[in-house]
Structure formats: structure tokens, C-alpha cells
């Protein structure tokens, strides 16, 4: 079976927000030079889910890592190959870049079609930069497949996937026939680190680079031209910060003082 995993390069989500600057005219985030980029965390977990399926089913499982982004995104594919993916696909054609969830899903779905014989697409529940959670589901819609969201566990037996989903009030396990798109959540657990062996092998694994033409996408449907939403503004939310620190010589005094504050503000 073949699994395609969608991995996106994002600013390292552990970097404090204060490091970034907003370019108000371009309506884009500006990263200081040398700022590390990373694989979006849920995408790492999506890849981990694919690797666990291969661990369980053995050598017949092939894993392709797909990314859409500028040339620098090659490094996110390298990371995926070092974690254990078998091949990479880079969509770095400028005509495909700067789209929205729709244009991105369209290009990634076209890449899945071009790969051919993909049984399972795994994506993150949301990318750490857009926080949107639309591309995985959108790919399923465009491919005419089912999407199962917020996976904590993904297992495959024969032509059926069994997915445990995280809901607001608990968990649910669903079964669905392949082909399928599954979006993966952090509850899946920590992704593995690249092993020395896989890192050595990664350099020899194939990486294909496809443009809009190879994907059969007309320029006006792809990238920025195909985007359906316009970012009018990007800004740092205003925060009022006048914290009143509770005084007291002992924890008991502090606790009583806090309770009094709450009472006086009619919150008790």
C-alpha cells in the first residue's frame, strides 16, 4: 500500500512571537534571518502515524512525503526522509505558492493523483502557521474521498482503516474503506526522531519536483491567483496587561487576599 503524508514547513512554533515582525503592507510575517524553520508539529505526527502503520504491516508499505512551498522546503522533505519516508515530492513552482487552503488542497490533491495508487493520505489536523484545518479535508473533497479528522490512532487492515478520533467529550473509533484522508492530532503521541541509519539513507532517496504544468493545473486556478480569500490585514492582537499582584507574607495571607478581591468584585 502507498501512504502520502502532507508535510509543511513553518516557522518553528516554539519561537517566541516577539521575534517575528509583521510587514503591514505585504500583510506577511517577517522572520529574522537565520530563524529556524520546522516541520509543522501535527504533520510530524501524521508522518509518525504512517511509520507506525508500516511498522505494523511491514515492507509492503511505501511512504511518500509531499510538500508545497518555496525551495527551502526541501529541508522539510529531508527531515521526513530521515524519519523514514521513502520518497519526497516537492511542489515549489512559484505558480503554486502563496495560495490559500483551497489552492493548496487543489495542488496537493493533484500531486496525489499524479503519484497514483495512493491508498491513504495523512495530513496534520492544522498547520502551525495557518491554524486553519482545511487542507486535509479539502483534499478529500477534491479527490472524492472520505476524510476522517482528529485522529489519535490510525490502523489499517486490508482495505479498511480503523481510526480513533478525539471528540469534545471523549473518543470515537470509526472504520472506513480506503482510499481515505485522515487528519492527525497531537494525541497520537510523540513522533520519532530521525535515526542515524535513516539519515544516512535519506540522501539516496528520490525527491521529485513537480510544477503546475506537470500537475495539470491552469495558472489561474493555482497559487495566489486561485486563492479564494484575501488577507486584508495581519496584526498582533492588543493585550491589556495590568495585573494586580496579590500581596501577603504567607500563602494563607495571599489566599485570603485573593478571595477578598474576588468577593469585592462580586465574583464569589
Amino acid at each position: 500500500m502507498r501512504i502520502a503524508v502532507c508535510v509543511k514547513q513553518v516557522p518553528n512554533p516554539d519561537t517566541p512571537a516577539a521575534v517575528f515582525r509583521v510587514d503591514e503592507t505585504a500583510r506577511e510575517l517577517v522572520l529574522p534571518p537565520g530563524q529556524p524553520l520546522a516541520m509543522s508539529p501535527f504533520d510530524e505526527q501524521a508522518l509518525e502515524a504512517a511509520l507506525r502503520i508500516r511498522d505494523e504491516l511491514g515492507g509492503t508499505v511505501g511512504i511518500s512525503a509531499l510538500t508545497l512551498g518555496p525551495d527551502a522546503s526541501r529541508s522539510v522533505l529531508k527531515h521526513a526522509l530521515a524519519m523514514g519516508a521513502d520518497e519526497g515530492v516537492l511542489l515549489a513552482d512559484p505558480a503554486l505558492l502563496s495560495g490559500d487552503s483551497y489552492a493548496t488542497a487543489l495542488a496537493l490533491a493533484a500531486a496525489v493523483r499524479k503519484l497514483g495508487a495512493v491508498d491513504l493520505v495523512l495530513a496534520g489536523r492544522q498547520a502551525a502557521d495557518t491554524d486553519a484545518g482545511a487542507v486535509g479535508i479539502g483534499m478529500a473533497e477534491l479527490l472524492g474521498w472520505t476524510a476522517v479528522t482528529f485522529a489519535k490512532e490510525v490502523r489499517v487492515a486490508g482495505a479498511t482503516a480503523r481510526v480513533t478520533r478525539v471528540l469534545d467529550d471523549g473518543l470515537e473509533t470509526v472504520e472506513a474503506p480506503l482510499p481515505l484522508v485522515v487528519t492527525v492530532s497531537n494525541e497520537l503521541g510523540a513522533p520519532r526522531k530521525p535515526s542515524l541509519r535513516e539519515t544516512m539513507r535519506a540522501a539516496r532517496k528520490p525527491v521529485a519536483a513537480w510544477g503546475a504544468g506537470e500537475l495539470g493545473l491552469a495558472a489561474q486556478r493555482a497559487g495566489a491567483a486561485g486563492a479564494r480569500r484575501v488577507r486584508e490585514r495581519l496584526f498582533v492582537p492588543a493585550r491589556e496587561s495590568h495585573c494586580e499582584f496579590i500581596a501577603g507574607a504567607t500563602p494563607q495571607e495571599q489566599a485570603s487576599a485573593l478571595a477578598r478581591c474576588m468577593r469585592d468584585a462580586k465574583l464569589l
Binding site: 512571537a17 510575517l29 491554524d131 480569500r229 484575501v230 486584508e232 490585514r233 495581519l234 496584526f235
Partner: peptide
Amino acid sequence: LLFTRPCYGGSFRETLSMRT
């Protein structure tokens, strides 16, 4: 209609308009 939402992990906000 203008839609304002958090992005980049909640550290920033964007305002979107829709073409469709």
C-alpha cells in the same frame, strides 16, 4: 464581510475577505 481569526499559534491575527 471581514473575518478576523488567530493564526501562527494564536500569536497573530489576520482579517480575511472572501472572493466566493
